[in-house]
Amino acid sequence: METFDIIFYLFALITVGSACIVVFSKNIVYAAFSLLFTFFGVAGLYVLLQADFLAVTQVLVYVGGILTLLLFGVMLTNKVISVDMKTGTLHAVPAMILAAVVFGSLAGLFYATWSGVTAPASSIISTARPIGEMLMTGYALPFEVASVILLVAMIGAAFMARRPKKL
């Protein structure tokens, strides 16, 4: 299976490279657009992991919803007249050290708990049906709580972002 390896490395390269552009680019618009490629790369990795339903949901929710929101945020919060699209960085060295510590501890944790799982689910079936059954039976209460959270967030966001009414 050489093709799987090549596709995995391709998606991993796209994901990590565009994530680096998101974080290190001085231009916010470039960062927002390269976030698109990060989301698509992660969706491709989901497909490689046989999570087809989640890949579609990733594209729908992140690319269709969150990225659009972020782009609106970028466009609404940049001064149009004095073009101030550039942003600076600060605390570079402590941040690098902390990120290295985080990466090392995560990698160590993964390495310690890995325990040589090599046999993936061999049968390729659609995951939409098991996820749906799980959400309707075992995870019914968290599902309802998540829907309430979404409703509250929607009302709160609309309330906060609205222009305050003149008294």
């Binding site: 960085t89 605390h91 941040a95």
Partner: peptide, 12 residues
């Protein structure tokens, strides 16, 4: 995750 941590800590 480490790239995200760097972004949260360094960007303004």
């Amino acid at each position: 995750f480490a790239i995200g941590v760097i972004g949260v800590l360094t960007r303004r």
